[in-house]
Design a protein around this nucleic acid. Structure first.
Lengths: 158, 158
DNA sequence: TCCATATTGTTGATATGTCAACAATACTCA
DNA sequence: TGAGTATTGTTGACATATCAACAATATGGA
């Protein structure tokens, strides 16, 4: 009878990372439900509130870490609700430029203050300084992960 | 002309958290693709490798932070591939007990060592001690998030 | 110029996820 | 015991996600 092997601190931390992100995502679904938005829809709209005149669908897919083809339906539904519009991209007839409509701007003006307050609350009990350190470590983890993904072909080669 | 407002450290850290989790998830899809598994399928199988005689579908849904109804299809597909089996739950005729088959055990014996190594590599450049601290902070964030979700009805009340 | 190559958005197939509603079964306690 | 309530798994409708394939269009050299 041997004791079960104790998982490594890094493995445990990775599981906690994914678990926490899942918890936040699930909770945000309820949160954004107040405005009949899904988290994915909110994230897309949030990008469009940045100064500038919108983004193409490919740009959106890169920012949202999602596949091009996923943006089509997302924009379709937001457009049907009148929150975004597709404008012709001058100089590239393949592309659309997706922008917030006036209604989209009004909705985001309403949602964003609540969102920022909620973002602060999830770090309650953790000093801003420490949250920043955690963020920095997570940035490194993301970089490591991308590097590993690029090397997958030679994964496990010593 | 005022400068754009600088986002708070906690807001930035929250975005980084979600972004990193997304990056890991996307990378893991490629990783598990070597064994024709999706991340969701791997996570389910991984739970079943724990000692004990399997889990019911409701237990699986709680561990995986996902809806009951999602487990049905997940188990259906894994069962069709012969990696898991549904056994009758003694004492509760509503429930199934999902267990790994011999083939499921063989597959996980093959995958897990690669998975553990990859989990370590993701934290490269970050001392184990520091990874554990990050994990601890993330655990607190998850707790705060759950608390906030429970209070959503009174959200934004001072 | 013209050809090879890349990029953009869409489609259809499919997996993963939610939710509401349902039937079957289990549980509680007056 | 029995009535009301809760839990379990499934289904169907739908949103979100991937991927491969496609047509249209851009782009970069020979």
């Amino acid at each position: 009878m041997s004791a079960p092997p104790k998982p490594s601190p890094r493995y445990t931390a990775l599981l906690q990372l994914l678990r926490t992100a899942d918890t936040i995502w699930n909770s945000s679904r309820v949160f954004f439900g107040r405005w009949e938005l899904s988290p994915a829809q909110f994230n897309l709209l949030n990008l469009l509130t940045d100064p500038g005149d919108g983004l193409t669908q490919s740009e959106l897919s890169r920012e949202l870490l999602t596949h091009r083809s996923n943006i089509t339906g997302l924009v379709d539904r937001l457009e049907a609700r009148g929150l975004v519009a597709r404008r012709e991209e001058t100089g590239d007839r393949r592309a659309w430029r997706v922008v917030l409509t006036a209604a989209g701007h009004r909705l985001m003006d309403e949602v964003l203050p609540h969102y920022f307050r909620a973002a602060e609350r999830v770090w309650e009990g953790i000093p801003a300084r420490r949250a920043a350190e955690v963020g920095e470590a997570l940035r490194q983890v993301a970089i490591n992960t991308e590097r590993a993904a690029g090397q997958l072909a030679v994964e496990d080669r010593p």
